[in-house]
Write a protein that binds this DNA or RNA. Structure first.
Lengths: 348, 348
DNA sequence: GTGAAAGCGCTAACAA
DNA sequence: TTGTTAGCGCTTTCAC
């Protein structure tokens, strides 16, 4: 009663209390070998009495089957974009006998750092990271991995790290999207921007900016609306922006950091009595499954989400299973503009 | 060249090649203590040459800060329902200094089993599981946890396991939903059912069935359409069902296993020229964020998703940190019918 | 700065 | 069926 646990309860404690040897305790716990029922009872009872929990065993021998594992650190749990990336990575992992463990940084550097350290320390075989953009861009946790010769792959570029990377050319896609809008006769374009912790967000802004200036369109910081990454963000930003926007200077088209933003914007526009695409054209990014199921199917820049995850997993497994240190590998994928019904051709 | 690696490369090998002691190698890897630059170089070089990867250390001492961890096994990565559960669990975990690791079974028993074993074997401190319904209902992996006195919490009931559980009364909610439809004058109700591996799916079917029979409504197996859990499933099933359904016997209302199904159904109906709610009323389940952003905001049964995750995490942490074995705890939450625009009042 | 040696909690091999 | 013993790969004193 009220006994204070000073030290971790160990297998020896259990053995002592049950009056058996450690080996017997081990046998009971792992359900191997034959142990007399009465003995098992005693052991189990001792375990409960002491609240004993076996310490993880670092089985230095061949990994027991089904213990191979990969980690994946994403940035937003509730973003279908990452869901598809996870699914792609998971498929490849399973194919190769690996289990996939996912952690999310939710855009916070500290969380990412802790997740990286945790997964490595726990003996997960390798890591895929979608790194958050950080003010001071502290890469120490990644350098730490390098030092330890720990296999990892980055999804999304991060400057200053020599590692294997899978990424997409974002600027290119932005250009295509904006050029398409311009070709349809749009001249007043606004961009709803994503979170600052995302490199993709930055690249998409830059892409839109360049494409506009290349076409001699005016695109200032006023044409960038900081929105976010979720449905509610698109709704809020859309409502605020279009409410305070005089009808005559209203943008004819909006490009959104992602499809979720676009879907939220749809609703805001509907509430304001504005129709898509008649009054406002909308372009999204990612091509999440929802995009084609919206009331007005969404024109969007398709990211090869599952492919990115799959490729990263493939690369990672190669590194994990290599008998020697492999040189970093860089794969860059293309994105593609998917034309649907959310953009209207303007009469000139 | 071509040296075959017979055994795992160990720290001793590195020490030998670098001509230092194991302690020095350890110091270099962990970046602690002062090591002469030239020595560090030699060690790092040896690590690379041998492709050495430090084995996970089972630090029997106090866990280094930021190593506390919880595992959560979900059933579908790309289902916003689980995203919310994860978010709820994650928030509580972080608050208490735990990192959350997520694995998905994708509805497959084998995956669940492997994930459970992996997370336990790797020394994750505790587990939350949304168990898949399995034909033979093999619970051995859960009993294994019991035997090991390993802390875990179930989300969704599973028969025959004495464990801490967080769940929702599904049948009740089904009844409320159907009674609401009936009160609105609906008499021809069809249910789009979810995947067989989900207990919730079964319960929702049963709930609808009971509610109908309680109101002397005809509800046979013909009124159950096996759909699935995703947008595409709702679309496919919707298209198939309503296409082959003579107009005069067309259901006036559809209840869907989840909101995703409902959203997919929306699109199918639109393509068939049927309007929601004018021609067909729709009720969903879960109340995912999307529900209120649909073109016709969806009436749905709200599941306390984040709360379930949060509560499970809270319970789990209590078990993990308890100094003695705690008795299983059972929490049952209520769900709530959220009235939106997708159900029409029928004139009689 | 570095090395030798002790010890961690556990499993495995073998003897009883 | 059970106990004894010998490791496992790593970190950690503590001399040098």
């Amino acid at each position: 009663m009220g006994t204070i646990q000073r030290k971790r309860v160990t297998m020896s404690d259990v053995a002592r209390l049950a009056d058996v040897s450690k080996a017997t305790v081990s046998a009971v716990i792992n359900g191997i070998g034959m142990v007399k029922d009465s003995t098992r009872e005693r052991v189990l009872d001792a375990i409960e009495r002491l609240n004993y929990r076996a310490a993880p065993v670092h089985t230095w021998q061949v990994q027991p089957t089904g213990r191979k594992s990969l980690g994946l650190i994403i940035k937003e749990v509730d973003n279908p974009y990452y869901a598809e990336v996870v699914l792609g990575a998971r498929a490849v992992a399973e194919e190769n006998g690996y289990s996939l463990l996912v952690a999310s940084s939710e855009g916070k550097y500290e969380s990412e750092r802790r997740a990286v350290e945790l997964l490595r320390a726990k003996g997960i075989d390798g890591l895929i990271v979608t790194p958050v953009l950080h003010a001071q861009s502290d890469l120490s946790h990644l350098f730490d991995l390098q030092r330890r010769n720990y296999p990892y792959v980055l999804i999304e570029q991060v400057l200053g790290v020599r590692a294997s990377i899978v990424d997409v050319v974002n600027e290119d896609a932005s250009r295509k999207a904006v050029e398409y809008l311009i070709a349809q006769g749009h001249t007043r374009i606004v961009h709803f921007a994503g979170p600052t912790y995302s490199m993709h967000s930055q690249e998409r802004i830059a892409g839109v900016r360049h494409a506009c200036s290349a076409s001699h369109l005016i695109f200032t910081d006023d044409h960038i609306v900081r929105a976010g990454a979720h449905l509610a963000d698109g709704y809020r930003a859309g409502l605020a922006y279009f409410r305070s926007c005089p009808a005559e200077s209203r943008p004819t088209a909006v490009t959104c950091y992602n499809d979720l933003l676009a879907a939220g914007l749809y609703r805001a526009l509907a509430e304001l009595g504005l129709r898509v695409p008649d009054d406002v054209s909308v372009i999204g990014w990612d091509d999440i499954p929802l995009a084609e199921y919206l009331s007005v199917p969404l024109t969007t820049v398709r990211m090869p989400k599952a492919r990115m995850g799959a490729l990263a997993a493939q690369m990672l497994i190669k590194h994990v299973e290599a008998h020697s240190v492999l040189p970093p590998q860089l794969v860059t994928l293309e994105s593609e503009l998917v034309l649907r019904a959310s953009v209207r051709r303007l009469t000139l």
